[in-house]
């Protein structure tokens, strides 16, 4: 009997998820032992037409990382959906948009202009990418950018979500173990739509820092403060996103003295991560004086980045209006 087939793909992402998979060290040999890797652009040569030629549903497991930024991403997402029995939105970009999704604050033209005109960009003729270009050898194409970045499940049906930027290696290893056990009939898959490779509560649950009743008199930036190493960061006015962020990372950042920035996405049952955090932070601001409250809030220098860094594309808002409009 041939081995079940495995695929992994990157759409709009940075490549960190791929590295995280390789970072499982010798466990990667288990993948090879148990699966036939049929498509994994970063690790092996393959052509889209090979995938197109595969039978529908012939791939058992596809880990899809990256958001849907252009028509190529969308095409492969739909293709892999058709060819895969289990499609996993792998990593923050596929789950909720992540950093590439922050472009949803701006019209696409502005995004392109910025990318092709920064001080570090060598672009003397000030060219912009064109979807197609006529050359003597014929017309060539590059993918067309969409006005907003979408998450994988806004484009195709997704079976499981594996959050993290990137997912922690021990969690990846655990998920691979689980799938292998399922193949061997020793375990069962969780219900469709579940979040896998993560915990059910929040980062605070795994954080060892000491906590008191919270009141915030001042927000500060961690690089400008001497934070108490034992005490909850949020209580010290450092805007830590831990209370709203799904557990599963072993509270890596707070343990290392940095605030959680929310890469594991919303906790179970949270519909809009940013809105939740905004109301949570606002609830513990220790003042009833509007001017004083404004002053305290001014300590949050980048609210959009604070509350929606990883999840703008997957939030209720999904994008700012100018970005939507730029598609019209």
């Amino acid at each position: 009997m041939s081995k079940p087939k495995f695929a992994m793909y990157w759409a709009a992402s940075c490549g960190g998820c791929e590295i995280a998979v390789l970072n499982i060290h010798e466990k990667i040999l288990d993948v090879d032992a148990n699966f036939e890797v049929v498509f994994w652009p970063v690790a092996m040569d393959a052509k889209y037409k090979d995938v197109e030629a595969m039978e529908d549903g012939s791939i058992l497991l596809t880990l899809f990382n990256g958001g849907i930024r252009n028509d190529e991403n969308e095409h492969i997402a739909k293709l892999l959906r058709k060819k895969s029995q289990i499609l996993v939105a792998f990593g923050s970009c596929a789950c909720e948009g992540c950093i590439p999704g922050l472009a949803n604050f701006s019209p696409i033209q502005q995004v392109v202009d910025t990318a092709f005109s920064t001080v570090s960009t060598d672009n003397p003729e000030n060219v912009r990418p064109q979807p197609s270009y006529d050359m003597p050898e014929g017309t060539i194409h590059i993918p067309t950018l969409y006005p907003v970045l979408r998450t994988l499940d806004q484009v195709v049906d997704v079976d499981y979500y594996m959050p993290g930027c990137p997912p922690e290696s021990h969690q990846i290893a655990a998920v691979i173990d689980l799938v292998i056990q399922v193949l061997q009939g020793k375990a069962q898959l969780p219900p469709k739509g579940s979040v896998i490779g993560a915990g059910g509560s929040t980062v605070c649950d795994e954080c060892k820092r000491k906590r008191n009743e919270k009141t915030i008199k001042e927000f500060g930036r961690i690089q400008l403060m001497h934070a108490d190493p034992e005490l909850c960061l949020l209580e010290q006015g450092i805007p830590c996103n831990g209370p709203a962020t799904r557990s599963g990372c072993n509270a890596r950042c707070p343990s290392a003295g940095a605030q959680c920035i929310g890469c594991y996405g919303p906790a179970e049952g949270v519909v809009d991560y940013g809105a939740r955090l905004v109301s949570a932070f606002a609830s513990v601001i220790d003042s009833n004086d509007p001017a004083e409250i404004d002053r305290i809030l001014d300590g949050l220098v980048d609210p959009a980045g604070q509350f929606y860094r990883f999840n703008l594309a997957g939030s209720l808002l999904r994008a700012a209006k100018p970005a939507w409009k730029s598609g019209d």
Partner: peptide, 23 residues
């Protein structure tokens, strides 16, 4: 409070006007 989902961040502790929340 869903005890499974609560991670004891204590944001709610001070908010209740009726002092109904205990940690």
């Amino acid at each position: 409070v869903n005890q499974e989902q609560c991670s004891g961040c204590r944001i709610c502790n001070n908010l209740c006007p009726f002092n109904a929340i205990l940690f």
